[in-house]
Design a protein around this nucleic acid. Sequence first.
RNA 1: GGGCCCAUAGCUCAGUGGUAGAGUGCCUCCUUUGCAAGGAGGAUGCCCUGGGUUCGAAUCCCAGUGGGUCCA
Length: 929
Amino acid sequence: MSDLESAYRLEYFEEEGFHRRECVSCGAHFWTRDGDRETCGEPPCEDYQFIDNPGFDASYSLTEMRSAMVSYFERAGHDSIDPYPVAANRWRDDVLLTQASIYDFQPHVTSGASPPPANPLVVSQPCIRMQDIDNVGKTGRHTMAFEMLGHHAFNADEGTDYAYDGEVYWKDTAVEHCEGLLADVGVSLDEVTFIEDPWVGGGNAGAAFEVIYRGLELATLVFMSLERDPDGEYEMKDGHTYAEMDRRVVDTGYGVERWTWMSQGTPTVYEAVYPDTIDFLKEQAGIEHTDEEAELVHRASKHAGNLDIDEVADIEDARAGIAAELGVDAERLTELVAPLEDIYAIADHSRVLAYMFGDGIVPSNVGTGYLARMVLRRTKRLVDDIGADVPLDELVDMQADRLGYENRDTIRSIVRSEVEKYGETLERGGRRVEQLAEEYADRGEPIPTDELIELYDSHGIQPGMVADIAADVGATVDAPDDFYSLVAARHDDGDGGAAGGDGGGDDRLADLPETETLYYDDAYGSEFEAVVLDVFEREGEDGDAAFDVVLDQTMFYPEGGGQPADTGVLTGDDHTVDVIDVQERDGVVLHRTTDNPGKGEFVRGQIDTERRRRLMAHHTATHIVVYAARQVLGEHVRQAGAQKGVDSSRIDVTHYERVDRETVKEIERVANEIVRANTSVQCEWPDRHEAEAEYGFDLYQGGIPAGEQIRLVHVDDDVQACGGTHVARTGEIGSIKILNAERVQDGVERLTFAAGAAAVEHVQGQEDDLRAAAEVLDVTPTEVPETAERFFTEWKDRGKTIDDLKEQLAEARASGGGAGEEVDVAGTTAVVQRVDGDMDELQATANALVDGGQVAVVGSGADGAQFVVGVPDGVPVNAGEVVGELAAMVGGGGGGPPDFAQGGGPDAERLDDALSRAADVLGDAASAE
RNA sequence: GGGCCCAUAGCUCAGUGGUAGAGUGCCUCCUUUGCAAGGAGGAUGCCCUGGGUUCGAAUCCCAGUGGGUCCA
């Protein structure tokens, strides 16, 4: 088994007189032009050496740095392409955020299935790395948001089957380009080291260099040339073996922020990248340092590189170490530095939010929306902590402005709405915590861990916040160090094994040719002729026999893209079989039938045209509704899921507020305008990259198709990648009726609508309902709302009147006397009375009797047999026991407090028997006391 | 996509299978005409909706609706 050592011996290094050295501090191997060099140059082996000592000839702003770098690579033969969105899930479904420039080309380009937009190319790609969130502000070099400038080349062996072939350039040229750029900005190449650092990721691997200059990693050059293979000859650090591929990808990453920082030599990267924001925040937070303090902060920053929480066990210790080195008190250092760290983090987080909202992410409890919400809340807390009185939307807007986003109004409005939601959460939580804290403070106990977990998991309140509030009322908190892992444990319920794959797997299927699809040529066609290529016998739903029929060509649309399958029949010479479902597997269309049409037979297919027309109308209408929603709600609206149907369809769209009734009507109005405009619906199959370049990633509303060509559907100004069947002109839809808007997730609104005939049917159905209601009320439909309201208030008033009357009746009964049997129990008069009313009436009567100083036993036969027993204060009879015995006689049970109890049973005929024995029961109960 | 929590007076919320509550706001009266005043009395309610269990459900179970929150 060989290692990668030979992969690092480049001809370029040989020619240029490089030396391979081993770092005396960490043992890493590196290449350098300086034969005397002993360390690799990267912290912790060396400190930063460029602070106050800029490493380039000139000082660059971020924008200047980016354009200098891009133009260098353009001169070196690269095509520059526009960056992709930070929301990577807009073109791939395996990750949420863009974390590197290579993400732009995964998975289809790196796998060789699609050609790159240019080759070689350079791109300055905005990236977000959530995993760095705790380092931001502290290390001086970490940012969550950054631009990774990558120059990429995609190489493949001649004669291979990939979407690109031939050798563009490989390791030597890549390193040469890197040094060229460094020299171009004035770096003395003797000071640069190339550390060998094998790279592994996503099933691929390869040699890689970290490029270090004056203590800072300025670039990583990755040479992806291996793929996972159990028999491979290279064993990598992940423990798997890898083998050489027949394609090779140059994947480089240059941190534009770090280059900017290097050019300026400021104490932190943040001051180089966001000088205006930092000054602004310092001013708002009222931070002023004496010369001596400023000097201390300045010196401390040179050591901040060692504060990486991923590598330092305890950040307090690490800071204490720095303080000791500077000869100051650790506490004093923290006091000075902490607010600055917060300010740095705020600047960075605001940029993250600007990217996220600018690229159309909507805050939510799921996906990227959740990440955005977390960042926003954290940022809001930091702003509050430093005591700056600046609305968060303003800070984010400053960044959005700088980044050149055009949807700044939407961004601001999203941020405001989200800050408000957070405020409500905090207020709600605060009240809850106060109560809890008082409770535990009274008992002199700390708030226990499981209460904290509950508060966090269900109400979003951090333990730190609980502690703050608790302290106000003198309560303490029992917060363990492993708090967050306890929360995580609560979510682990040992998820069951993955669902088994769907059997099938016939080799026969793999041998069949792709089915020729006729539905794209003529969406209105309904009849076709075909040859049965093969028939697979399957087990149907109820164990009945079912068949998957493969034809050479078909007009049946297989389920896909949220559009259900067509149904219909296949007719042969002897018999006709029903097609009940249609699915597609690797280009082969499977027609699920109830009978076997016979392999090799010649059949005529006929699809259910009424069903198909309705599905087409709904599908085109779906595009229109999304488009209308974007017009009305804003550009951030994206389709988050869709299901077409025959009677109605639904689409889920992202939006940061509830869609109210007025807005629904507006969307409906715009949608119907497009219908009435009767514009034609066009389909085309352009090259994927050309389509992306022209229309952007908004194309992929309904999912991301594979392949070099994609199918685009144009409806009015709307363009989407879509594989469905559509009507030819929007007018054919007739009308669109939005039936309902519901919030399916936070930030996702579901619009249910009907199109064409289905829309009319729904309106008719609703009118039927309204007329039925009007008939019951005996008014015209227009008078229904008013009448309903009048009836409802009248009904409520009557309820109150009835309650009053019942009470009066009860009092009359109680004072009228005579109606009931009176007996003496323990020196008090007891009244046993039958009153055939409901429970309220019985209770009122009993209350009235008790108020008169009498024991009450009231029974009713109105709804089964029911009793209420009331006992005045001081009479030694347990009402609950009496009721229990009486109720038992009618086959039921009962109970209640000793002074007032209820009970009953189903045996109404025995009610009088039970009442007649009530006196005895009372007597027994009294003597038992 | 999954987990958890919540829904009761206009508002904020208690409520333990047995007669629906508090604080605040509201109305009336009194006191005082002094700043978030004091006193007395009064009205508040489809206890989210629909099923189920039970003699009896605001309370327990199931489903739905609406909201919150954590995780991937």
